[in-house]
Amino acid sequence: MKILVCISQAPDTTSRIAFTEGDKAFDSSGVQYIVNPYDEWYALVRAIELKEQQGGTVTTITIGEAACDPIIRKALAIGADDAIRVNAAPEDSMQVAQLIAEQAQAGAFDAILCGKETIDHNGSVVPAMVAELLDLPFVALATSLEVENGIAKMTREVGGGEESVEVALPFVASASKGMAEQRIPNMRGIMSARSKPLNVVEASADAPTSVSKFTLPPEKGACKMIDADRPEELIRLLREEAKAI
């Protein structure tokens, strides 16, 4: 199987969130970037497991500038064979999906796996856009994936449970928790990642949406403490004051 995994960078989960350029851009000063957890822990690791079981290759693709190279090397260290980086600043989900779809088309992949969303823009929509651009079947929020005789069998999160779904290869899926377990790259992986191919491609696409302003949410007021001997007081406050129950 030839698998393409879409990898994006995201600020470390403990990053201070602040904005710059008149609140139009994320302030990346001092921010440590990681592989977006859903892309790494679930999509990438499951792709590598499938390759280990059945043979084939795992290629990663990232839309981003050279600052993304460290997270791409990490994906290679975890076990991807090669990487594509489309040298463009990601601005919008449609733009990113178009750039991914162009490369995916050229590579004739059997499976395109993405994380279910990035932890910065939380859009969760690039995977299905890629599927539509390539006219492929799509499964959102997949929690498991097996491939047998050209058929991909998945489970996916739906409201109130899990559905089993089958699609023929090639297909696109977005990976959610349950799909695989996080892998820590070992020394050999880290060494070999340095010499694996990272192909940089120049391309651009239009962005039909743009952020006009970022704002931080208002601070919470003080927490009202309730005596541990009188928890029933909490229930009263939840009804009468907060009107929550």
Binding site: S93, M94, A128, M129, A140, S174
Partner: peptide, 22 residues
Amino acid sequence: DHFGRAVAPRVAVRLKAGLVAG
């Protein structure tokens, strides 16, 4: 939700529309 995340992006592609998620 699981429905909109699968369908709305495809609709955006078909209609050449910008999509704002969430």
